[in-house]
C-alpha cells in the first residue's frame, strides 16, 4: 500500500496544473493527507490588499480531497469529483504558505466523502474548509499507456 500511496502523491504533484502552482503533497496515508503551497505573487486575487485569489484555496482543497479519496481504497482508485463545497472563512495573506489537510470520513463502493481544510498561521485557524464527494472508478492509473510499437 505504501508504494501505491507514494505513486498517487507523486502522480498528483506532477499534474500540469499542480506542477505549475508548485503544490506539494507533504503526507499521504490511506484516507488522509496534507499539502503545502509556497506563496507566489502570481496567486494574488486582490491587487490592493495582496490576498490570494479564493481559487487558490479551491484548487489546493480540490486536489488534496481528490488524492485522499483515491488513497482511501486498498490499492488506490481513480475518482471523479461529483461536487465540492467551499467555505471561504477569511482572506489569505499573499506572502505566507498555504497548508492543507484532508480526511475521508466515509466511503462505499461508489462514493468517497472527504473533508478538508486550509490554514496559514495556525492549523486551528482555518482560512477555508471544503467538503467533497467523489465517484469511485477503477484502479488508480494515471499514466497514459504508451503504444507498444
Amino acid at each position: 500500500m505504501q508504494d501505491i500511496l507514494s505513486y498517487i502523491a507523486e502522480t498528483v504533484q506532477n499534474l500540469p496544473h499542480c506542477k505549475k502552482l508548485g503544490l506539494e503533497i507533504t503526507r499521504l496515508n490511506q484516507g488522509s493527507g496534507a499539502t503545502m503551497l509556497r506563496p507566489n505573487p502570481a496567486f494574488i486575487g486582490n491587487p490592493k490588499r495582496l490576498f490570494f485569489h479564493s481559487a487558490i484555496a479551491t484548487t489546493v482543497l480540490d486536489t488534496l480531497c481528490g488524492a485522499v479519496a483515491s488513497s482511501a481504497y486498498d490499492g488506490g482508485r481513480t475518482v471523479a469529483t461529483l461536487d465540492l463545497r467551499l467555505d471561504h472563512l477569511t482572506t489569505m495573506a499573499g506572502d505566507k504558505p498555504l497548508y492543507g489537510q484532508a480526511e475521508c470520513f466515509h466511503k462505499n463502493d461508489d462514493v468517497a466523502y472527504v473533508r478538508g481544510w486550509a490554514w496559514q498561521d495556525n492549523p486551528d485557524e482555518p482560512v477555508a474548509k471544503a467538503t467533497g464527494t467523489f465517484m469511485v472508478n477503477g484502479p488508480f492509473q494515471l499514466i497514459v499507456q504508451k503504444d507498444p510499437s
Binding site: 499542480c18 479564493s54 481559487a55 479551491t58 482543497l61 480540490d62 486536489t63 465540492l84
Partner: peptide, 8 residues
C-alpha cells in the same frame, strides 16, 4: 482542466 481552476 483541473477542477480547482474550473471552480476558480
Amino acid at each position: 482542466i483541473h477542477g480547482g481552476v474550473v471552480g476558480g
